[in-house]
Simulated scan of single mutants.
Amino acid sequence: MLRNRDNAYGLIAILFHWTIAALFVGQILLGLATQWVASLALQFTLIQWHKSFGFLILGLAALRLFWALASRRPARPRDFSRTEWLAAKLVQASLYVLMLAVPLAGWALVSTSTLGVPTFAFNMFVIPHLPLARSEAAEHFWRDVHEWLAYGTALVAAGHMLAALRHHFWLGDGILKRMLQPGAESPNRGTVKGQKAAGR
């Protein structure tokens, strides 16, 4: 079950989803930690790790987008209204864009920094800077863009998560299971509710 089916996600799509989600949560915490520590040496180390994981997310997000475009897309679950499905697709598309935009803005930030500190990706190799002019104004601009995009992504992801939990625990329609188990299909929402009402 590596590939998507007509009504189910495959293992590759699921791994992309949860790996990027876990990395993003870690990045939010790591980014906040760089502002809390007092030691400049520790702060430098944390920033380097933050940049390294940012480039990892950028690469994975690009691969995930390619996989999504090249793979079969699971059909709209039964009993899902068209409006509900379009809203879910809009949130999903927004997350695709934001997962690319946040690390790209971070890359622009370090590229325009007047400090000119290189990025040592996982202490293995140096990531070159983007061909952007360095200035304090540009650095502040891209810092604000990076932060606001990150916070915006966190809000969209939180809404996405709450909607998934609502479907799983309140509506009981099996939507969340599709992203937890390769090949899992969503049962009819009304059927699930009927089973609960019958005490099954």
Rank of each mutant, 00 (worst) to 15 (best):
M161E: 07
A8D: 00
L46S: 08
A164G: 13
L109C: 12
E139G: 12
D6I: 04
P118E: 02
S113C: 14
R72N: 07
G54L: 05
N7L: 12
T114A: 14
R72A: 15
L155K: 07
P118Q: 02
R78K: 15
L65F: 09
I127T: 06
L165P: 13
V145K: 15
P77M: 07
V156K: 10
L90K: 02
L171F: 11
G26W: 01
W148R: 09
L11H: 07
M1F: 10
A121N: 08
I57H: 05
L15Q: 00
L165K: 11
F16H: 15
D6L: 13
F120D: 02
H50M: 06
P128R: 00
G106W: 04
M1A: 12
R200V: 10
A70S: 14
A184C: 04
S52R: 10
N4G: 03
L2D: 06
K89Y: 08
A41Q: 08
T153R: 05
L58I: 04
I47M: 08
Q43L: 08
A41G: 02
G172N: 10
Q43H: 10
A101P: 03
V117T: 13
A21F: 11
A138N: 05
I12F: 02
S113E: 14
G183F: 12
A150H: 06
R166M: 01
N188M: 00
W85G: 05
